[in-house]
Write a protein that binds this DNA or RNA. Sequence first.
DNA 1: GCGCAATTGTGAACGCCTTCACAAACACGC
DNA 2: GCGTGTTTGTGAAGGCGTTCACAATTGCGC
Lengths: 224, 224
Amino acid sequence: MTETRVPVPTLERLAIYLRVLLDAHESGIQTLSSQEIEQYSGISAAQFRKDLSYFGEFGKPGVGYSVEALIERIERILRLDAEQPILLVGAGNIGSALVGYPNFQAHRLRIAAVFDNNFVKIGRPFGDLIIEDIARVREVNAQIGARLGIIAVPAHAAQEVADALVEAGVTGILNFAPTILRVPPHVHVRNVSFLQELAVLSYHAVEDALRVNGQARRGGKDGV
Amino acid sequence: MTETRVPVPTLERLAIYLRVLLDAHESGIQTLSSQEIEQYSGISAAQFRKDLSYFGEFGKPGVGYSVEALIERIERILRLDAEQPILLVGAGNIGSALVGYPNFQAHRLRIAAVFDNNFVKIGRPFGDLIIEDIARVREVNAQIGARLGIIAVPAHAAQEVADALVEAGVTGILNFAPTILRVPPHVHVRNVSFLQELAVLSYHAVEDALRVNGQARRGGKDGV
DNA sequence: GCGCAATTGTGAACGCCTTCACAAACACGC
DNA sequence: GCGTGTTTGTGAAGGCGTTCACAATTGCGC
């Protein structure tokens, strides 16, 4: 039933292509070959063509891809052709950064409401918005109809917020809290974890430093 | 030469295990089986055991893993056993959120210096730190010796900052700017892209909504 | 119109990570 | 001590996404 024919990595790359194409469009470029897209995106030409092939044919052999048409196509695929309202929960540091993030606009993503559970914050302005009570999320989203939500609260509160968002009709959650969220199968979660990213970099950065210094790795697997 | 024996996904999961283990440790739990870790982390027991096998043996058959010892082991693998200083570039919204992010501490990650190129900001306090001139990054890092850097500047300035960080001795970069960074082969980059994450969610959220409504997909691949 | 150069779309080969399945190791009770 | 139940560590199998390679298609110049 849940036919996820399109690989998730492909979707992730579509967003990258879109960015490259928007840049090119702004520069007045009208046509791009997969080869050129490789130059700008760092993703191989073959990969690009394969990714697009999941959604049909679009380029012209010997010519390439129409920048404008491809932008429209990818936007339609990613449902970024119409404005996507988003519910933000958590009016703290991260929430603040997100409200002020300038790049959403270009992708027609808009934070349509902000929630918190701290009664001191509720009612206060937050960017262009007023912080609302998380208890009212369902009520508010009955008006907005958002399918996307962002969780930017401390880890211990994240699950509760996730439940509330799902209750309110959200089917896609971007989670900044360092916790595993339990959600119904029809809801998609993507986690953003600075710590995880930094941990991976930490491993590589120092690992490489040891190699560069010509320092021998202590023998066997145990020498880590 | 560059023997990356350990898969990157494994490293990403190590950070997750570490979090689970730290939680368990705090709860006074002394031993965990791979089965129980699956419960808490959402990652399969087999995967967990396989991941650990890259670094040697550690559990005891019939018993499980010592929480405390495993924490130490993973911290050593990820180089989080000693404090890791980090250079942050960009004293804007995102930079502000990062400086205020409370969870770094538990992983011994510390933002050791903040840089910007805006002379209005330079010299001002930023969290516990004073904003320094990005032009001095090399000089400053000669003292700090950081191998990790975070780029939290607008896309158009990101490449220049990356070059400066590499010059200053950084070998791992966490990039928040929506651009592909060109770096020497010994430098590792990981990108954090809210837009990309939201785009993927946008696809799924609406895709599923259509299915739930029982709305037939328009025929063929083109019906996207 | 026709040959040539460029570029697409895609089946097939490949490689890598995940999952499986089981022998080996250990605790515990009797 | 020995049998039983549990859990680990890991080769082998499997699945999935990437890369390869090439036939098909188009533009362009002559």
